[in-house]
Design a binder for these strands. Structure first.
Lengths: 226, 226
DNA sequence: GAGTACGAAATCGTATACGAAAACTATGAC
DNA sequence: GTCATAGTTTTCGTATACGATTTCGTACTC
């Protein structure tokens, strides 16, 4: 998973800051001071600025004119927007990819899902989340539309930045998630029509959102995993 | 439609270059030389560079390291990706917005559609295209998910940059388009369920893509309007 | 005449520098 | 003690400058 050759310093800065956000070193609200980051990375402020603007476009960072950049927060409204959008683009990506998924890929996905089941027993939420992403990545491997795939990845990145700081399971949701994965695989195997697959994939995502919204208000600022 | 206060010079450069692309002054393949644009706009290269990178993120510009930026071309594959993605996000945006559209907005949309019909008779494709965008903008006015709306606008911008250089009608498609608009309005008025509306909105977009794909190969590089 | 090698010109990438705006702090009035 | 205000500090925004890379043109060889 290590990044290949770091081309420009701007690229390097982008990858570095993004990694720190996604892994949680920079938590939401964290103030990103250009000069400070530049010094840390051993480059000047210009490429850092460029990197930050790129992250802003992806929604990971909020930039305010003449004030500065902060890591985007976990505003519940934003979470809702992101999950709803993900539901739609993941649904489409799954439906488009389904006809191109061969039995080998299905087997791999199933293996990943089995590992996820294990994680539930040993309670390893971090690994569970990573595997969850792997599962869908296998399905999307041959997605015929890279634009849609890109939108999926953007959504994932946003969620990652949220998750790193306020990780929490919605009770029982993870178990359901694993079952839904299996159901999805069976739909794909049986060459179900595109609409059916799309609806299933959508609901797989939006069910998590619903679970979140159903949480007692006191927990409203915590965020579920899948 | 004139832009309000131009904040930073970077913003100014962004708006200026984007406008030139969308309106067709810079046609696909056009070489965007930083220094030249900077001089034109009376600013230095740094904000121009930032603007170009932003346009790159939106897909309007292609940037190659140590070589420079060019206006994105009309690669039929890219067109397909964009239209397919638009079909999905417009479908979702329409379905989400439908319950929030009041009768006043419906009336406005209908008026716009009537104007579009006029444009067909007087053969005014440029105005037709603008009105087409207006029509959907009315529907999306109260879209409850700004992320999805943003995706729609990005798609439109991409199409605009294509259209400005190779505008052409697919025979008969525009007439159908107007009819589909009316059908869509009736679905919304009758409070049809979300799925039905979504499917209709999707097909409205993908029908244009299909019409394009059905064109004789000799015309394959020309692109339809709606 | 075609192809290659070398040099000049163009263009990009980034460091540095400085003016401008905002945020912070300390001082004083009420 | 609280609020307003002026001065200081921090940080951003952009201009300028220069080294690095690519591209283009020319001359030379085969």
């Amino acid at each position: 998973m290590t990044e290949a050759a770091v081309g420009s310093k701007s690229e390097q800065a982008y990858a570095a800051v993004k990694a720190r956000i996604v892994e949680g070193t920079y938590t939401p609200g964290y103030r990103l001071v250009l000069a400070k980051i530049a010094e840390d990375l051993g480059v000047s402020v210009v490429p850092v600025r460029e990197a930050i603007r790129r992250l802003e476009a992806e929604g990971l960072v909020k930039f305010e004119r003449n004030v500065g950049a902060t890591v985007s927060g976990i505003d519940p409204t934003e979470y809702l927007y992101t999950m709803q959008t993900l539901s739609i683009v993941e649904g489409a990506a799954t439906a488009l990819s389904a006809p191109l998924i061969d039995s080998v890929a299905i087997a791999r996905a199933r293996a990943v899902n089995a590992e996820m089941r294990d994680c539930l027993e040993h309670f390893d939420p971090v690994r569970f989340t990573a595997l969850n992403q792997d599962f869908h990545s296998v399905l999307f491997e041959h997605c015929p539309n890279p634009h849609i795939l890109d939108l999926v990845h953007r959504g994932w990145n946003r969620l990652a930045s949220i998750r790193a700081s306020t990780f929490r399971f919605v009770p029982g949701r993870a178990q359901e998630s694993v079952k839904e994965h299996e159901a999805l695989l069976q739909l794909i195997e049986s060459n179900a029509d595109a609409d059916t697959i799309e609806q299933a994939a959508r609901r797989h995502r939006s069910a998590t959102l619903d679970a979140y919204l159903a949480l007692p208000q006191s927990n409203a600022e915590s965020v579920s995993a899948h």
